[in-house]
Design a protein around this nucleic acid. Structure first.
Length: 601
RNA sequence: GGGGGCGUAGCUCAGUUGGUUAGAGCGCUAGCCUGUCACGCUAGAGGUCGCGGGUUCGAGCCCCGUCGCUCCCGCCA
C-alpha cells in the first residue's frame, strides 16, 4: 500500500464499496456527535466523508483532530446508511470507516478559516495566501487560469505560432512606463531593467526571420495599481507576425480569443464576429475607447436641437464656442423623476455641475417630455429629440454639455452608471470589439506642441512616400493622421493594444521629427532598433492581450488578485514573502549602491 | 502626488443623542450528544475600540493629527 494514499479524496464511488482505502488530506470540517464523529477530508480533488465511532480504533485520535490538520486515514469503504447519502458530493454515496488515523501535519489556530465563503480583509488574505488558496473559489480560479493558458498555447500553435523566451534582464527603455531596475554588480553605476513588455525583442524576432512569434510573457511595470491592473508584474499573450496587414492580425487573433472564451465561458454567448469601431466613433457613441457593448445605450450629438433654444444654459454654451456640443445619453425605462434626480445628484457628487434630463410620460394619449429642461426647450424641440432618440413613455434622456474633450470621460461614466442602475447590461454574455483608427498624434495644449497620441512605433496609415513628404508645420493634416493601431475590448475591459509596426527607419525618423524629437535623441535612445530595421526588416505587426484580464473575465471576478496565484497588494508589497525587503550591507557594497533616505542627503 | 470609503475580540460585524461593567455570530477551550454534512446543546476564555493628541464631569461615538487597508484620479508608449 502506498505510504500516503490509494485514492484521492474525490475518487471513491459506490463501486468501491468493500475495499480498504487509504486517504490523505486536510480536515475540512469536523462534526463530533459524541458517539459518532464525521470528518470531511479534503484534498485538491474533492471531499470524502470519514466516520469514526467508539468501536473504531481511530476514534480516540479522531476526537483530537482540528480544522485543517493534515492526516492520513485508513479504513473500509462502505455505503452511507439509507437516507444519509449526500447528493451534493460526487463521493456522497459512500464513506470511509476510519480504522487508523495518522497526523501528518497539525495546524495551529487559523487566522482565516478555509471552510465557508465569507469575505476577509485583503491584507489577511494576502499574508496567508496559502490558506486562501485552499478555499474553493480561489483554488478553482487558479486551476482555470492554467487551463486557459493551456488552451491559448494549443490554439496559437495550431495557427502556426511558435513560442519563444525573451530575456528578463534587459535594458531600460526610455519610452513608456517606469522601469524596474536591477543594479549590475560587474558594471558599477549601471542597471538592467525588467521588460515592460518584450516589444523590441519580438520585433527583432521578426527581423530575424521567424515569421510568427508568441509567448506567455511576464511584463514588469513600476506603476500604481488598480483593481484591473496588477502592481509590478503581469502576463501577456504576446504575439507578432511578419508580412501582415491589420486584417491578418485580426484574422489570427480573433479565433483564438473567441475560441478560448467559448471554451471557458460556461455557455455564455461570445460575439461571433468582433465589430470594428473607429476610435472617434467609440468616443461619440459610448464615451470611451473601451466600450462595454453589453450596455445598449448609444449616445448622440443633439447640439442642433439645443442651439438657439429656450434652454438658455445649453444655448449659451453652444453659442460661445464653435467646438462645444450637447450630447444625449438615452435611458430606456429610466423615466421617473426619482431616478433622474438621483442621477443628477450622483453627477454633482462626481464634481459635475449636474446632469440635465428629460423624462417622457403619457398625457392625454400623447407622449410628452417632463422636467425643467423640457419646459424650457419647448414641446416642438422636445418632440424632435424624442423622435431622434426613439424614446417613449417611461424612458428618459440625460444631457452633458460643453467641450466634448472635457466631458467625454464623464459621459462614458454616466452611460455605464445609467446602464448599470437600470439593469440594461446583460451580464450573461461576452461582447468583443476592435477599436481601430487611433489618431497618430494629438495636440498638447500645455506645451503647445504635437505629441504622439498612443504608440510612437506604430505605422502611420498613409503611403510611405506621402508620409515622408508631409509638412511638419501642417498641424491640421498631422492631427488628422491615423495610426495602424488597434485595441481589443471585451465587456468594457481593454484586453490589449496592438499595431502594425513602423519598420522603416526613414518613416520613424520623420514620425519622431513631427513630434519634435531631435534626430540625435532618437538615434541615441533607439539606435539598436533603428539599426536592425535598416538591415532588412519585414513589415510586421502584433498585439498582446493581457492574460490576467482574460482570466478575470472568464472567472467572473472584478479584481485581478482573485486570479493571480501570489499577488502583491496595492502598494506593490508581497505580504507573505515580505517583499520588498532590506538587503545586507554586503549585498549593497557588491552592487555599488548606497541607500539615501529622503531628508538625509 | 491627490481624493473618497473603511479601521471595535483570532475572523465577520452590531454598538441609539457623548452616559453604568462594549455585544452577537464564527473560531478557540471544557463538558454533553451514535448519522451529521453550515450538526445541535451548555459553560468559559478572549478587547489599550488602529495609534497620538484635544474638547468634555464623562469619548468606541465629537475635533485635530497620524498610520494601515481599499477604491478612484494622476500614471500605465
Amino acid at each position: 500500500m502506498h505510504r500516503y494514499r490509494t485514492h484521492t479524496c474525490g475518487a471513491l464511488r459506490a463501486a468501491d464499496i468493500g475495499i480498504e482505502a487509504r486517504l490523505s488530506g486536510w480536515c475540512h470540517r469536523i462534526r463530533d456527535h459524541g458517539g459518532v464523529l464525521f470528518i470531511d477530508l479534503r484534498d485538491h480533488y474533492g471531499i470524502t466523508q470519514v466516520v469514526a465511532d467508539p468501536d473504531s480504533a481511530a476514534f480516540k485520535i479522531a476526537e483530537t483532530l482540528r480544522a485543517e490538520w493534515v492526516v492520513r486515514v485508513d479504513g473500509k469503504v462502505r455505503p452511507r446508511p439509507a437516507g444519509t447519502e449526500n447528493p451534493d458530493l460526487p463521493t456522497g454515496a459512500v464513506e470511509v470507516y476510519g480504522r487508523e488515523i495518522e497526523v501528518l501535519g497539525p495546524a495551529g489556530e487559523l487566522p482565516m478559516p478555509v471552510f465557508g465563503d465569507q469575505d476577509y480583509p485583503e491584507d489577511i488574505r494576502l499574508k496567508y495566501r496559502f490558506l486562501d488558496l485552499r478555499r474553493e473559489r480561489l483554488h478553482n480560479n487558479i486551476i482555470k487560469r492554467g487551463e486557459i493558458i493551456d488552451s491559448i498555447r494549443r490554439r496559437m500553435k495550431a495557427q502556426g505560432f511558435f513560442e519563444f523566451q525573451t530575456p528578463i534582464l534587459t535594458a531600460s527603455s526610455p519610452e513608456g512606463a517606469r522601469d524596474y531596475l536591477v543594479p549590475s554588480r560587474l558594471h558599477e553605476g549601471k542597471f538592467y531593467a525588467l521588460p515592460q513588455a518584450p516589444q523590441q525583442f519580438k520585433q527583432l524576432i521578426m527581423v530575424s526571420g521567424f515569421d510568427r512569434y508568441f509567448q506567455i510573457a511576464p511584463c514588469f511595470r513600476d506603476e500604481d495599481a488598480r483593481a484591473d491592473r496588477s502592481p509590478g508584474e503581469f502576463y501577456q499573450l504576446d504575439l507578432e507576425m511578419s508580412f501582415v496587414t491589420q486584417d491578418d492580425v485580426f484574422a489570427a487573433v480573433e479565433p483564438v480569443m473567441r475560441g478560448v472564451f467559448e471554451e471557458f465561458a460556461g455557455g455564455k454567448p461570445v460575439t461571433p464576429k468582433f465589430p470594428r469601431i473607429p476610435y472617434q466613433e467609440a468616443l461619440e457613441k459610448y464615451g470611451s475607447d473601451k466600450p462595454d457593448l453589453r450596455n445598449p445605450i448609444v449616445m448622440a450629438d443633439v447640439s442642433a436641437i439645443f442651439r438657439g433654444s429656450g434652454f438658455a444654459i445649453f444655448a449659451r454654451i453652444l453659442e460661445k464656442s464653435r467646438t462645444a456640443a450637447v450630447w444625449a445619453i438615452p435611458a430606456p425605462r429610466g423615466g421617473s423623476r426619482a431616478f433622474c434626480d438621483r442621477m443628477n445628484s450622483w453627477a454633482q457628487g462626481e464634481g459635475q455641475p449636474g446632469l440635465g434630463y428629460i423624462f417622457f410620460a403619457s398625457e392625454g394619449g400623447a407622449v410628452v417630455g417632463r422636467g425643467p429642461v423640457a419646459n424650457n426647450l419647448g414641446s416642438e424641440r422636445t418632440e424632435a429629440l424624442r423622435q431622434k432618440l426613439e424614446l417613449n413613455d417611461g424612458d428618459a434622456v440625460f444631457f452633458v454639455a460643453g467641450e466634448p474633450q472635457t466631458f467625454i470621460k464623464f459621459a462614458g461614466t454616466a452611460r455605464a452608471k445609467i446602464g448599470e442602475e437600470l439593469g440594461l447590461i446583460d451580464k450573461g454574455r461576452f461582447e468583443f470589439c476592435w477599436i481601430v483608427d487611433f489618431p497618430m498624434y494629438e495636440w498638447n495644449e500645455d506645451e503647445k506642441k504635437i505629441d504622439f497620441s498612443h504608440n510612437p512605433f506604430s505605422m502611420p496609415s498613409l503611403r510611405v512616400e506621402e508620409f515622408l513628404a508631409l509638412d511638419a508645420s501642417d498641424r491640421e493634416k498631422i492631427l488628422s493622421l491615423r495610426a495602424i493601431q488597434y485595441d481589443i475590448v471585451c465587456n468594457g475591459v481593454e484586453l490589449s493594444s496592438g499595431a502594425i509596426r513602423n519598420h522603416r527607419p526613414d518613416v520613424m525618423r520623420k514620425a519622431f521629427a513631427i513630434a519634435g524629437y531631435p534626430e540625435a535623441e532618437l538615434e541615441q535612445k533607439f539606435s539598436g532598433m533603428l539599426h536592425a530595421l535598416s538591415l532588412g526588416a519585414p513589415p510586421h505587426g502584433g498585439i498582446a492581450p493581457g492574460i490576467d484580464r482574460i482570466v478575470m473575465l472568464l472567472c467572473g471576478e472584478e479584481n485581478l488578485r482573485e486570479v493571480v496565484l501570489f499577488p502583491m497588494n496595492q502598494r506593490a508589497e508581497d505580504l507573505m514573502m515580505g517583499a520588498p525587503s532590506e538587503v545586507s550591507p554586503k549585498q549593497l557594497r557588491e552592487l555599488h549602491i548606497r541607500v539615501v533616505r529622503p531628508g538625509t542627503s
